[in-house]
Simulated assay, not measured.
Amino acid sequence: MTEYQKNILVGALFIAGILSIISGAFIITLMLAAGIIFFSTARRTTPLEN
C-alpha cells in the first residue's frame, strides 16, 4: 500500500468515525479508531537477519 493510499484510507476511517460518533454508534467508533491507529502507525519494516 502506498503512502497516498494509506493517507486516503486513514482519512476515510476518520470521517466515518466522526459520523458514527454523531449517530451514537460507539462500538463502531471504537473499531474505526483502532483501524485509524493501526494504519497510521503501521510502517514497513525490514525483517531482521539471523
Rank of each mutant, 00 (worst) to 15 (best):
T46E: 11
T46Y: 11
T29K: 10
L13H: 04
F39L: 06
R43P: 02
P47H: 02
I8L: 15
Q5M: 15
S40C: 03
F38P: 02
G17Q: 11
T45K: 15
G17D: 02
A25F: 10
S23G: 05
F38L: 11
T41W: 13
F14L: 15
P47T: 12
L48V: 07
A34E: 00
I28M: 06
G35E: 00
I22C: 01
R44C: 01
M1Y: 02
F14W: 12
I27T: 07
M31I: 15
R43E: 08
G24Q: 03
I28G: 03
S40T: 09
Y4M: 13
R43L: 07
I37L: 05
G11C: 08
L19N: 03
F26S: 08
G35R: 07
G11F: 06
M1P: 08
A34Q: 03
K6Q: 10
L9C: 14
A33W: 13
L19D: 08
T41F: 15
A16G: 01
G24M: 03
T46P: 01
I22R: 01
A16N: 10
I27Q: 09
A25K: 12
L32R: 01
T2H: 05
I27M: 09
L30D: 03
V10A: 05
P47V: 08
T46K: 15
R44S: 07
L48G: 07
F39Y: 13
K6S: 10
A33S: 13
A16Q: 10
I22S: 02
T2A: 04
F14K: 14
K6W: 03
A25I: 05
A16L: 12
Q5C: 13
R44F: 12
I37N: 03
K6G: 01
R43H: 08
G24E: 04
M1G: 13
P47I: 07
T41H: 08
I36K: 10
